[in-house]
Amino acid sequence: MSTDTLSRWARFKSSNLVHDFIHNKVAMVSFLIFAAFVIATVFAPLIAPFDPYDPLQINIMNSELPPSWQDGADPQFVLGTDDQGRDLWSAILYGTRISLIIGICAVALQAFLGITIGLLAGYVGGRTDSILMRIADIQLSFSTLMVAIIVLAVTKALFGTQSFNEYALFMLVLVIGIAEWPQYARTVRATVLAEKKKEYVDAAKVLGFGPIRIMLRHILPNSVSPIFVISTVQVANAIISEASLSFLGLGMPVSQPSLGSLIASGQDYIFSGSWWITAIPGFFLVLLVLVINLLGDWLRDVLNPKLYKG
């Protein structure tokens, strides 16, 4: 049986990636946990026993109840309640949802900007290339978190807390998304520079294909594996950035908490011994980021892409 009679699925199944995955316990466990996270957050409204956004379901009398395995707990709140009397388990489910949405959307934005700019810089070359890459160098030298803190702090001061909170999700995606495009741009540009001299690109040109088609259909597929590896690490970083910003009060408001804002709201209660308000959301945050990082490490080892080193 020749390869082209195999279906895409069969080719995928016999690939190196899948073979290695089945034999790598760390990768398998990480993937299962990550999948559990995704499923739990997609179906959060069905799984969560309470709606943390509904003020009618929150009773301040229930505040600071410990998790169910400790003394003085209320069995209807499995992981206890936070300082406002919200069920912690429900809040974590919805919070992880927000963290994941922001992480994935921000990385999608980064990838879109970075791939477009990288293709353009590599394919057009010359002055456009050197200007774009200079900007990328400068942008990369500013740490994302530093820029994000400053931009969000100033925006918050400009528009006031009220309207800032309304657009917080949007702002977070925008700021984290715009700050990290050079990661993608550099890798894509390096691929374009290596590939555009090759014969198949000349052949495509002779066939009369336009530059956009050549860039997207012929050159870009060569950088799929580095893009894949960068993306996993970037999602983990974006989630940590989002949590840090929310922790500083520059992200998701307390009425619509992400994991970072949940941790922040529990910080003051640690001194009175209510460790769970901080520690349990913290545990889920670390677990989520850790499994994504482990998957990223594994992908890097398996795909072994030549990452652009600056």
Partner: peptide
């Protein structure tokens, strides 16, 4: 890799909880 995955503010809070509180 675990260290990279723990945000700095969480390390700080947990340290306060264990070593100070």
């Amino acid at each position: 890799i675990v260290g990279i995955s723990i945000p700095v503010f969480l390390t700080a809070i947990l340290m306060i909880y264990f070593f100070a509180v």
